[in-house]
Measured scan of single mutants.
Amino acid sequence: MFKRLMMVALLVIAPLSAATAADQTNPYKLMDEAAQKTFDRLKNEQPQIRANPDYLRTIVDQELLPYVQVKYAGALVLGQYYKSATPAQREAYFAAFREYLKQAYGQALAMYHGQTYQIAPEQPLGDKTIVPIRVTIIDPNGRPPVRLDFQWRKNSQTGNWQAYDMIAEGVSMITTKQNEWGTLLRTKGIDGLTAQLKSISQQKITLEEKK
């Protein structure tokens, strides 16, 4: 169930391209415009997507990853294993993690069937560096609404905000991946996880038929 919630949630996290980005210092504006741009692209490019579902990787690479804190999220997933990894191991892992996100997020976007969304009203940021933004996803086919909290983090150097995690039903996506990959990290280390991520990233994206 959580895996499905995570995939549905990713439908609204794909941010804007650099040329049309919203105010990078306001995570609420980023979330709002990102959702609108993403849904528009999914709707307008269905012919290309249906002809070649792996085209979704391109959308992810162009529109999402430049505005997601990939390395920060990847380091959180590694936890204690990050500090013990060599620079070469980290570089290989982050490259594999990025390719994994292209496949995983692309597969999530393949679930698009006309969903709509509501974003919580903007709250004062103050001096906060981590801000959760509640998004409610509404399914046109009558499924119950899904309420999610996207975690946005302020870059201490640039002042810009980027998304790095999502919490559904009190469970963090980062925590879920830590639990899912924990045994592999304990037995085969970061190299074993890197190899698995490379394998997963090679899987073809498949479209979910409308139910």
Rank of each mutant, 00 (worst) to 15 (best):
N26P: 06
Q162I: 08
D127A: 00
M6F: 10
F150K: 05
E45R: 05
P15I: 02
V146N: 06
V68Q: 15
M1G: 00
R98T: 10
P87S: 11
Q48V: 09
K71C: 01
A18N: 14
P144L: 09
E91N: 14
A51M: 10
N141C: 05
K29P: 14
L11N: 00
R90G: 04
K3D: 00
Q36T: 15
E209C: 11
F97A: 05
R90S: 05
R134D: 01
L16Y: 10
Y82V: 02
P144I: 05
D149A: 00
L64A: 01
H113K: 03
G182E: 04
P66L: 04
H113L: 02
E33H: 03
D149I: 00
V8W: 15
L5Y: 05
E99Y: 12
L16T: 07
T136K: 14
T187C: 06
K204F: 12
S84W: 08
D139K: 15
I138A: 00
A14Q: 07
W152C: 01
I167P: 15
A18K: 13
L5I: 07
I59C: 09
E122I: 09
V171T: 00
N141A: 00
A85I: 05
Y100D: 13
D61S: 12
K71S: 07
S201P: 15
F97N: 15
L10R: 00
W181C: 15
K83R: 09
E169R: 03
P53A: 13
T175K: 04
R98S: 12
V146I: 01
A85P: 06
K43Q: 07
F2W: 09
P87D: 09
A14W: 14
F2C: 03
W152Q: 02
L64M: 05
K29N: 14
D40Q: 10
D32S: 12
Q69K: 04
L101E: 06
A168G: 00
A51W: 08
E180F: 00
Q69T: 15
E45C: 10
I174C: 14
V146G: 03
A163S: 00
T136I: 13
T86A: 09
E169F: 00
T20V: 13
T25S: 09
L109I: 01
Q115P: 11
T176S: 00
D40L: 09
L42T: 09
K211Y: 09
G192F: 14
T136D: 04
A120N: 09
P53F: 11
P66V: 04
A95Y: 08
G106C: 12
I49C: 12
V77I: 04
P145M: 12
M166V: 04
A35L: 12
L193K: 14
P53M: 08
Y72R: 01
I133S: 02
E99D: 13
R50Q: 09
K83Q: 08
L197E: 07
L10T: 03
Q46R: 06
T86L: 10
D23R: 08
I13T: 04
A96E: 13
L184M: 07
P132I: 04
A104G: 14
K177C: 07
G159M: 13
Y93D: 04
R134H: 01
P145W: 05
I133E: 05
T176P: 00
R50K: 07
R57A: 13
W161H: 02
G159P: 14
R147Y: 00
Q123D: 07
Q203H: 10
L42C: 11
L56W: 07
P124G: 13
Y93M: 06
P53H: 15
D191F: 08
Q107L: 14
A168L: 08
L185D: 01
A95S: 13
K204D: 10
P47K: 10
A9Y: 12
I200C: 07
L30E: 11
R143Y: 03
A88F: 13
R134V: 00
E63Q: 06
L30N: 05
R98W: 06
F2E: 00
P47S: 11
T158R: 08
K198G: 09
A21P: 11
G126H: 08
R186Y: 01
L148Y: 08
A95D: 10
R41N: 05
D139P: 13
T183F: 05
L65I: 14
A95G: 14
M1L: 02
T194P: 14
E208P: 14
F2H: 02
R134L: 02
A163V: 02
Q203M: 10
T38H: 03
A19I: 02
T176N: 06
Q48D: 11
S17V: 13
Y81A: 06
D54Q: 12
P66G: 10
I59R: 02
Q48N: 13
A92I: 13
S156W: 13
A108I: 00
P121Q: 10
A75N: 01
A104L: 06
M111E: 14
A163W: 15
Y72F: 05
I167K: 08
F150V: 15
K211Q: 14
M166W: 08
A34E: 05
L10C: 04
G74E: 01
Y164D: 01
Q69A: 04
S17F: 08
S172N: 06
L185I: 15
I49R: 06
Q46S: 06
D23H: 11
K29H: 12
Y100G: 09
K177E: 08
K43I: 05
T58S: 09
L185M: 09
L56C: 04
F94D: 02
E209A: 14
R41Y: 02
A21N: 13
L78T: 05
T129L: 11
G170L: 01
T86F: 04
P121M: 08
S156Q: 07
V77P: 08
Q48W: 10
L16I: 12
Y55D: 13
Y67I: 06
Q196L: 15
M7L: 10
I205Y: 14
I167Q: 05
Q157M: 10
G106E: 04
A21W: 06
K177G: 13
S84M: 09
V135S: 02
H113Q: 06
N155M: 11
F97V: 07
W181G: 15
M1Y: 00
T38E: 04
Q24G: 09
F2L: 13
T116Y: 15
D40E: 09
P132T: 08
R153E: 00
G189Q: 11
A110K: 15
A22V: 12
E99G: 13
W181T: 15
Q69I: 04
L197D: 02
A85L: 07
D127C: 10
L101H: 11
V135C: 03
F150S: 00
H113Y: 12
P124C: 12
K37P: 12
K188V: 04
A195P: 11
A92P: 10
G189R: 05
I205H: 11
G142L: 10
Y72K: 01
G192P: 15
V12R: 00
Q123I: 10
A104T: 05
Y100A: 12
T58Q: 08
L125Y: 14
V68H: 09
I49N: 05
Q107K: 05
V60Q: 05
R143S: 11
W181Q: 15
R153C: 01
Q118N: 11
Y112P: 03
V135D: 02
V70F: 07
I119H: 11
